[in-house]
Write a protein that binds this DNA or RNA. Structure first.
Lengths: 139, 139
DNA sequence: TATTGTTATACTCTATAACTATA
DNA sequence: TATAGTTATAGAGTATAACAATA
């Protein structure tokens, strides 16, 4: 019988669970022609009109060098508009098309999250999210 | 004030936490010249002498196409030996050098896991791992 | 000086397809 | 037919370095 020496490590379980989650969500979002990072940025902009690119990056944990091509692509697709804030930054807002797609993406994500939630016994759910947040949030 | 619309989603928190965990562990393992997948395979072999490559892949959730180069690299570095099992498979065993490195890798991983664990309030830890396991384990 | 945004580039993990050899 | 292993390739996320323009 094989024994997994990593099995009881929280970091290992974290990675396996995260990969399992992504393996479900990614194909769902690709039906909307969105990658996960793109969808996250899009719904973040919808929820925060005129937010700056740098602020989204900080909020979602995406480095500025990686934000640039994401925002550029969403812009090219006509999903958002850039409103000049000052000489070096723009406020981002979703267009009407962008809002429709953001809403669809949010639906997809909510369905996915519900599926995940249902896998966890109800009395564990609150503790689960709280513990996760302890890990990735600034102390 | 910006608001993160994904903040209370378990899948989102999972990904953020997993990324934060990896950002800590990866540089530690690279001091041993090991990538995470390599280290995982190495300690899995140490814990299960003469395990087959396909069994490790199933245990760790690594596709066979991705196992091949990992095992080949560990073999080239003299960290493991392949013992013929039948015509198409070999049992894998760590060499003396491989065992030393596997032990070091395990130490690094345990330090990392302890750091992670300490971020979580003690009364949440058991539930946390149980919930994670619900997500990635076969029903 | 610090920040915003950008480009280029590299690395790691994951996924798929196609193939050989063996059970 | 199914399994073990391999090769090649592509996609996605993340990371660093360097730079221009602006605060």
């Amino acid at each position: 019988m094989v024994s997994d020496p990593l099995r009881n490590f929280p970091g290992y379980a974290l990675r396996r669970a995260s990969n399992a989650s992504l393996a479900d969500l990614t194909p769902q979002l690709s039906k909307l022609n969105l990658r996960l990072a793109e969808a996250s940025v899009l719904v973040a902009i919808e929820a925060n009109p005129e937010i700056k690119q740098s602020e989204i990056g900080r909020m979602l944990g995406i480095a500025s060098a990686n934000m640039a091509p994401i925002v550029a692509k969403l812009d090219e697709r006509g999903l958002l508009e850039r409103i000049k804030a000052d000489g070096r930054s723009h406020g981002l807002k979703v267009t009407a098309t962008g809002k429709r797609l953001a809403d669809l993406a949010m639906e997809v994500m909510q369905e996915h999250e519900q599926m995940l939630t249902e896998r966890i016994p109800e009395d564990m759910r609150e503790t689960f999210i709280a513990a996760l947040t302890c890990i990735w949030t600034e102390t």
